[in-house]
Simulated assay, not measured.
Amino acid sequence: MLVAGDAARPSTGQTLWFGESGHGAAGVAWDWVRLPYGVVAMADPMALITNLQLINTAGEVLAPMESVRQLNEIVHALPWQSEVQRALGVH
């Protein structure tokens, strides 16, 4: 989803990254905002939406705060900003 901005408000949108495996589909979604100078950032790094359940090396489900930290590391490793810039028509 993309909402083009103007002089009064920035462009905003939502990104969804997903993949399929033998266990089914997995995805992570987040809202983003285009800041001054064309910088694209997550609108709220704590507001990730996912169907993933992360576990530690002992097989225990991670606490919500630890899951958010791990998911943020995953999101920051993805080339999503360049895809948003492409969708916005920014080079």
Rank of each mutant, 00 (worst) to 15 (best):
M1T: 11
L2R: 03
A4Q: 07
G5D: 00
G5P: 01
G5E: 00
G5S: 02
A7K: 06
A8T: 11
A8E: 10
R9Y: 00
R9P: 00
P10S: 04
S11C: 06
S11Q: 04
S11V: 04
T12A: 06
G13M: 07
G13I: 05
G13S: 08
Q14Y: 12
Q14E: 12
T15G: 00
T15D: 02
T15R: 01
T15A: 09
T15S: 05
L16M: 06
L16N: 06
W17M: 04
W17A: 09
F18E: 15
G19C: 13
E20M: 05
S21L: 01
S21N: 05
S21I: 00
G22F: 01
G22E: 05
G22V: 08
H23W: 14
H23K: 14
H23N: 15
H23L: 15
G24N: 03
G24H: 02
G24E: 04
A26C: 02
G27H: 13
G27N: 12
V28I: 15
V28Q: 01
V28C: 11
A29F: 05
A29G: 05
W30D: 00
V33A: 04
L35W: 02
P36T: 06
P36N: 08
P36L: 09
G38L: 06
G38C: 05
G38S: 02
V39L: 12
D44W: 03
M46Q: 14
M46C: 07
M46A: 13
M46L: 10
A47I: 09
I49A: 14
I49E: 11
I49Y: 12
T50Y: 07
N51K: 08
N51L: 11
L52C: 08
Q53W: 01
Q53A: 13
L54G: 02
L54D: 02
L54W: 03
L54Y: 01
N56K: 03
T57P: 00
G59H: 10
G59M: 12
E60Y: 01
V61C: 03
L62F: 13
L62S: 04
A63H: 15
M65V: 14
M65R: 13
E66L: 09
S67W: 09
S67L: 07
R69S: 14
R69H: 15
R69F: 15
Q70S: 14
Q70A: 15
E73R: 15
E73A: 10
E73W: 08
I74T: 06
V75C: 11
V75F: 01
P79F: 09
Q81H: 05
Q81K: 06
S82C: 03
E83D: 12
E83W: 11
V84F: 08
V84R: 10
V84P: 04
Q85N: 14
Q85M: 13
A87I: 08
L88S: 06
L88N: 07
G89S: 07
G89T: 10
G89P: 09
V90A: 10
H91G: 15
H91P: 10
H91I: 09
H91E: 14
